[in-house]
Simulated assay, not measured.
Amino acid sequence: MKVLLVNGSPHKAGCTNRALQEAAGTLNQEGIETEIFWIGNKPIGGCIGCRKCSEIGKCVFDDIVNQIRDKVYEADGFIFGTPVHYGAASGNITAFMDRLFYSELCGNYNRGFYMKPAAAVISARRAGTTAAFDQMNKYFTIQEMPVVSSRYWNMVHGALPEQVEEDKEGLYTMRVLGRNMAYLLKCQEAAKNAGVKLPEKEDAVFTNFVR
């Protein structure tokens, strides 16, 4: 089993990465393989709603969003991390998530994310964490992904990684998240081995509010 942890910070070795490392270390202790994937610090364009992904099975803009796709298919669970920028997730991770999740749902019929456990991790110097946390969780619930919780909301505080080290409760929260993620993955594996099938799927229904 493998969990893919996505670092949505422009700083590869910053506070967000430190939080993800704590969760990854706990997952490793629980026998779960991990990989931390950094989306980089080059600008990522947003979704333009062209819907070409429904025809070609991936985003029409061939950048970091498509480069992670194979890793998404191979992973059994996900943790997406972001710093807080102006009370919300970073611009790059927002554009990245918009295009990855939309093209996966629209183009590949949700084969990469469906029923795979997911969680968001937020880092901030001071405030905006809960707003960014709510924003990130919406990606998971629209893709039928079980959302993994921790003892508290998944956040760490600090302007530098060494300051995150002083956030003992934040790091504790990351470890609890790692253990809870591992438990759910093992439960899913046990269910699969016992012959428990995934939920029955039915055709989606789309209703506009304007008739």
Rank of each mutant, 00 (worst) to 15 (best):
V6P: 04
T16Y: 13
T16N: 03
A19L: 08
L20S: 06
A23N: 01
A23F: 04
L27P: 03
T34K: 10
E35I: 02
E35L: 07
I39K: 01
N41I: 12
C47F: 07
I48H: 07
I48N: 08
C50Y: 08
K52P: 00
G57A: 15
V65P: 04
I68E: 04
K71C: 05
V72K: 02
Y73F: 14
E74N: 11
E74Y: 14
A75T: 11
F80S: 04
V84E: 05
Y86V: 06
G87K: 13
A88H: 13
A89C: 10
N92V: 04
T94C: 11
T94E: 07
D98R: 02
R99I: 13
G107E: 12
G107H: 14
N108M: 12
N108F: 13
Y109S: 10
G112H: 10
F113W: 12
Y114T: 04
Y114F: 15
Y114H: 09
I122Y: 03
Q135T: 02
Q135V: 02
M136C: 08
K138G: 09
T141I: 15
I142E: 02
I142A: 15
M145G: 02
P146H: 07
V148K: 05
W153L: 05
N154H: 10
V156C: 01
A159I: 11
V164W: 10
E165R: 13
K168I: 14
E169A: 08
G170L: 06
G170F: 03
L171V: 00
M174C: 15
M174L: 09
G178M: 04
N180C: 07
M181L: 12
Q188C: 09
E189T: 09
E189Y: 01
A191R: 07
V196A: 11
V196P: 02
L198D: 08
P199L: 05
E200C: 03
V205E: 06
T207N: 00
V210G: 03
V210F: 12
